[in-house]
Amino acid sequence: MPDHDSKHPTDSPTPLIELVDVYKAFKTQVVLNGVNLSIPEGQTVVIIGASGVGKSVLIKHIVGLLQPDKGEIVFRGQRIDQISTAALAKLRRRFGYLFQLSALFDSMTAGENVGFPIRQDGSKTRDQIDRIVAKKLRLVGLDGIQSKMPSELSGGQKKRVALARAIALDPEVILYDEPTTGLDPVRADVINELILRLKKTLHVTSIVVTHDLSTVFKVADRVLMLMSGDFIFDGTPDELRNSDEPRVQRFISGHASDEDILELDGAA
């Protein structure tokens, strides 16, 4: 049972994003087993859970990259899982998405990558695009690297360029898929600071998928823990820290269970 707080922001009457009884399975493997989630505007929600538990699958449903087998995905009262392809393409421009591997286009420079969604939008001149690109790159502390190719950038710089691209169209929601994975602790903290900065300056709603606890305790307004296809925890970072749920505690302390050890012995 989720650990609900009576004063929790989920009690807001008009949620920005809602997942209602969402099921998703890949062949015989059930990944989401009746997930319910309601996110009010302006909140930073962090979804944690073990690797491969379905966190990325969950946020891919929110932007329509995956369709649920059953259930509803709602954004501002509109069903995302039922709208036409053209309407979905338009709606997606209200979201920014930071991919786990950054997903920068190899054939484009950093500047072209950041300017890509604006060019596709087709409403700005070349000069206006250049100015917006410089502004977004400045926001992530990388102005001046417009002409560099992704292969010339470090892992942390790639993430920041990808973040600049994600915010190029001033989205209402930013989805972060493992934003600090593969980065050293200092670079990871830079990304965490950026998430906080974007929340303050752009007033966006953020959904962060991670298993990095430093991100959880630094940026989260609310934490959810996904396990076996459903949330086993829903609360504030402090509630997470003090939770007496053994699975949550094991995740926080980073201790493998006896079952995990037995699994390891079995594999050997």
Binding site: R92, F99, L104, F116, P117
Partner: peptide
Amino acid sequence: VTEQLDALRVMGTD
């Protein structure tokens, strides 16, 4: 495999 196709979709580009 590097999610660039998904990145295009997310930016509203087919």
